[in-house]
Each structure stands twice: as structure tokens, then as C-alpha cells.
């Protein structure tokens, strides 16, 4: 029993240290975002802002000024690009994942492994040829180019996650449906689809977050100020207002809020989606 207590205490101390390590940057981000520019550039730093202010947030989120309009534009672009690529990716991934989970057609393994292997390739390998392709298609500097290229990671990922969900739906349900008079496709549509709704939601949100956070493609394909997504917009912001750390921290905070909120709400699905494949065997 004594030994047990020793390990538990160690675990608690370790977790406490880890929480400090995890939270410190985030806490400092929020604290800084509440300071004036002058207060931020102090040494030693003001640990607790003496005159907290929401000015930076008003600046960023108010359409009344140029900075706000710009930032809201980025925000809107990010929502649009992430949502469009998510919807497209999931729509294409659902039938494919279902087929990989259920059917044993020749070439299935080869195809599925190549889907898996995509996860291994760095974005940069795809960057140059896709850039050339987009130039050729006349899509450089359009959001369509991003929506399309986000499928390079969104699609394989969605297929993999969804296949995990379908694997967990007993195949007997479809067999029962087919015996009850449904065709293969009806069994999929009427029985499996409603059951996989949570899986599809989780997959969609995961792929939304990936797209929301994506940086390299957005950096390379877009240069028109009006079309930038948030990550690139943030960087632009930084070059333009190099010393406005509170503004930058406020922008980072605003950018992080939606994904962190989505994530925490759906934590359970997420953790399952992430780990499903790895612990199954």
C-alpha cells in the first residue's frame, strides 16, 4: 500500500508540472492580449496587467476599421475553405470507407494501403506539382485551389477514420436488412448511414480542424490579401504590425477558440477517432 501511494504522489506531481508546461504559453497569450502595446513591452514583464483592456479584440472584430475588416475577412475565408473541403472530403470518403470496411474486391488491400501511405508523405512533396497543376488549371490565388488540395490530407484521413467507425457497426445489421428485402445500397443508406452519423460528425470536425490549421498550402497558393486564410493572415499581420504583440496574441486567441471549443465538446469522439486504428490489434 505504501508503495502504491508513492507512485500516486509521483503521478500527481508529474501531472501538475505538465499542466504548468501546457498552460503557461496559453495563459501568457491571454494575459498579453489584454495589455496595451506599451504595457506588453516592459522589462521585467507585468505579470498581471495593471490596466487590462479588450481594445485589441475590438480592433480585430469590429468591421468599423480597416484592421477589423481585414481580420474578419480572413476569418470568413478560413470558415469557407475549411467547411467546403470538409464537406467535399467526407462526401467522397463515406462510400469509399464503407467499401473498404465491408467489401473484399480484388485490389482492395493495395488501394487501402496506398490510402494509408498518404499519411506518410510531407505536404511539401505535393506542393510543387500541385502548384504547377493549379497554375495550369488557372486556380493559383483562388480558394478553390486550397479546397482541392486540402483533399490530399483530408480524404485519406477521413477514409481511415470512417473505416474504423464502419468496422464497429456489426455486419449482421446489413445482412438482416438485405434479408428483410433491402438491396445492398439500401442497407447502406437506411441502416448503416444513420448509425454512422456520430462517426461522420467526428470525422468532419477532425478534418475541419486540420483544414482550419493548415498553413503551407495556403502560404504558397494564395497571395491576394483578400483571399488569405487565418494562418497566413496572422503571419501577414505580424509583418505589418511587428511590435503589436497584444494584437497578435489576441488574433491567435481568436483563431484558437473555435477549434479548441469544438475539440473539447467532442473530445470523446476525437480520442476514439485518433486511437481507434492503433489499439485495435
Amino acid at each position: 500500500m505504501k508503495e502504491h501511494g508513492f507512485w500516486r504522489l509521483g503521478g500527481k506531481l508529474y501531472l501538475a508540472a505538465l499542466v504548468v508546461f501546457t498552460m503557461l504559453p496559453m495563459v501568457w497569450m491571454v494575459i498579453t492580449s489584454l495589455k496595451t502595446q506599451f504595457a506588453a513591452l516592459q522589462y521585467p514583464p507585468e505579470w498581471i496587467p495593471r490596466n487590462p483592456t479588450l481594445d485589441q479584440y475590438w480592433l480585430l472584430l469590429s468591421p468599423a476599421n480597416a484592421v477589423g475588416r481585414e481580420f474578419l475577412r480572413y476569418l470568413f475565408n478560413s470558415v469557407w475553405v475549411s467547411a467546403a473541403s470538409t464537406v467535399l472530403g467526407v462526401a467522397v470518403a463515406v462510400p469509399a470507407a464503407y467499401a473498404f470496411s465491408r467489401f473484399r474486391f480484388p485490389g482492395r488491400n493495395l488501394l487501402f494501403y496506398s490510402v494509408l501511405l498518404r499519411n506518410m508523405f510531407p505536404a511539401v512533396v505535393f506542393l510543387m506539382p500541385l502548384f504547377i497543376m493549379m497554375r495550369w488549371l488557372g486556380l493559383v490565388n483562388t480558394q478553390a485551389s486550397l479546397i482541392l488540395t486540402y483533399l490530399t490530407f483530408g480524404l485519406p484521413l477521413s477514409i481511415w477514420l470512417l473505416k474504423g467507425f464502419y468496422d464497429n457497426i456489426p455486419v449482421q445489421l446489413e445482412q438482416a436488412a438485405r434479408i428483410d428485402g433491402a438491396s445492398r445500397f439500401q442497407a447502406f443508406l437506411l441502416i448503416v448511414m444513420p448509425l454512422s452519423a456520430p462517426g461522420i460528425t467526428a470525422t468532419a470536425i477532425y478534418s475541419f480542424i486540420m483544414a482550419w490549421n493548415e498553413y503551407v498550402y495556403a502560404l504558397t497558393f494564395l497571395n491576394d490579401k483578400d483571399r488569405l486564410t487565418l494562418p497566413v493572415g496572422l503571419q501577414r499581420f505580424f509583418t505589418e504590425y511587428a511590435t503589436n504583440w497584444p494584437g497578435l496574441m489576441a488574433a491567435s486567441f481568436i483563431m484558437s477558440v473555435p477549434v479548441v471549443a469544438l475539440f473539447l465538446v467532442l473530445q470523446k469522439y476525437f480520442v476514439r477517432a485518433l486511437t481507434d486504428g492503433a489499439v485495435k490489434s
Binding site: Q175, A177, I179
Partner: peptide, 28 residues
């Protein structure tokens, strides 16, 4: 196809449609 063979089947794990009521299961 199974649907055209005019058979009925009872499965080991029952394979009841989990998102449907008993009534809807019987009606399906």
C-alpha cells in the same frame, strides 16, 4: 439477392436495428 429469396433470418446477436423502435424493426 437475399431480398429476392423470400427468406427470413434470426441472427445470433439478433441484429436488431439499434436506432429504430421495436415497431419500426418489425415494420422494416
Amino acid at each position: 439477392d437475399p431480398k429476392d429469396r423470400d427468406i427470413a433470418m434470426v441472427f445470433q446477436n439478433y441484429a436488431l436495428y439499434p436506432n429504430k423502435t421495436v415497431y419500426a424493426n418489425l415494420a422494416f
